[in-house]
Amino acid sequence: MEFSAPLKSDSIKIMLLGSGELGKEVIIEAQRLGIETVAVDSYNNAPAHLVANKAYTINMKNKDEILDVIRREKPTYILPEVEAINIQALFEAEQEGFHVIPNADAVNKTMNRKNIREFAAEQLKVKTGKYEFVTTFEGLQKAASNMGFPCVIKPVMSSSGHGQSVAKAATDLEKSWEIAKEARGDASELIVEEFIRFDYEITMLTVRNEKQTVFCEPIGHIQQDGDYIFSWQPMNMSETAKAKAQDIAKTVTDGLGGRGIFGVEMFVKGDEVYFSEVSPRPHDTGMVTMITQSQSEFALHVRAVLGLPLDYIDYGCGASAAYKAKEDTFNPVVTIQESAFAKNSFVRVFGKPQSHVGRRMAVALTFDKNSSEVALENAKTIIKKFSDK
């Protein structure tokens, strides 16, 4: 493969639609290969804006604005990095000959929980929990009664767990309805899911292109309000469960097709594995791979996009801990004690220009040669050394 310099007539050009902290790492990995990078988002000075060759701020829900920047820049590859995006723009770009990663249909299926659940459960026949879709509060009450309590309630479209809640009793349904309706994204329809009393949940990072499919070691994670706060790799699980998880991940990603990395989320109960969701892009829980692998999820994503080999080396065990803002401010400052910068840790501050309570602003990464549990405890200790004002 030939590699040129950025900003030349023959440059390979990657455009990110969505420029948060995950996109920032993708841009950095692409630039290491001399790839020209264009970062697009709905607000100025997004994390990936700060490291890309070019940056645009547009309305990501506006089809014409997305197509305008695509036609202007003529990227080799378009990488949608957020769910809140006009999908018709991607379909039209694809029809015009642009290469959407992994493909517009996969983005469309995965950005909507109804589409991907029906695709996985009914077409691909992978194992999932029971579910129903509702559009009214009365429908929610009926579905919850059918499902039993507790049950999980989510908008069919939202990002980073926004709008998700667990109703433990019928008296919780009104609050769950309000939480879902206030979420960013499309809350016109909700999914009501069986609460699987799982032992743990994992992300199976699955990287594919036309040449091969590669699995990273399973990542365990803990969520709070639908968004991850801790992750660790590898997750200690039986070989039977691991094989089932890989089989589900391959079935789903083969069904979606295209190039790139997919974060396949699953619930595990003993040796039984249930499919939950999939994101066709780097996954927030996968930030731990920046310290555990020779090729992080971001590097693997870029390699897959370019059609390059996907092999890598596992260094050992690691964990990540997300730091979320405690304040609302237009001038965020994250204070980190010096002891957080240890020989077996990384700190990543995202540089977001504005914070609000609960917004992810930084991450602590820790490494241990032999134990994920030790790495996780170290990450929990280090994240306590973070504060903001």
Rank of each mutant, 00 (worst) to 15 (best):
S387L: 02
E277L: 06
G148S: 08
Y200G: 12
V166S: 05
I14L: 15
K385S: 09
Y274M: 12
V134N: 09
P234E: 04
A304R: 01
N62E: 10
M204N: 03
K168M: 06
R113V: 05
V268Q: 01
E239P: 04
D64L: 03
R72H: 08
S296I: 07
G23Q: 00
E81M: 06
K326R: 09
E182R: 08
H162Y: 06
R259C: 02
L365M: 09
V357C: 13
S176P: 08
H301G: 03
E178W: 14
A342Y: 00
F149R: 11
L50C: 09
E201T: 13
A46F: 10
E217S: 08
G161Q: 10
I27H: 02
D254P: 08
A106C: 04
F91N: 01
G263S: 12
D186E: 07
D225S: 13
V278E: 14
K125N: 07
G260I: 09
A342V: 00
D227N: 14
K326D: 08
K127H: 10
P280W: 04
V349R: 13
T110K: 02
K168T: 05
E73G: 00
E83M: 08
I58M: 13
K24Y: 02
D254F: 05
W177S: 11
K130H: 02
P234I: 04
A46E: 05
M361C: 15
F367E: 06
K142T: 15
D388T: 01
P353F: 06
G23S: 00
E277V: 09
R259M: 04
E65P: 06
R113C: 06
A321L: 12
E239W: 00
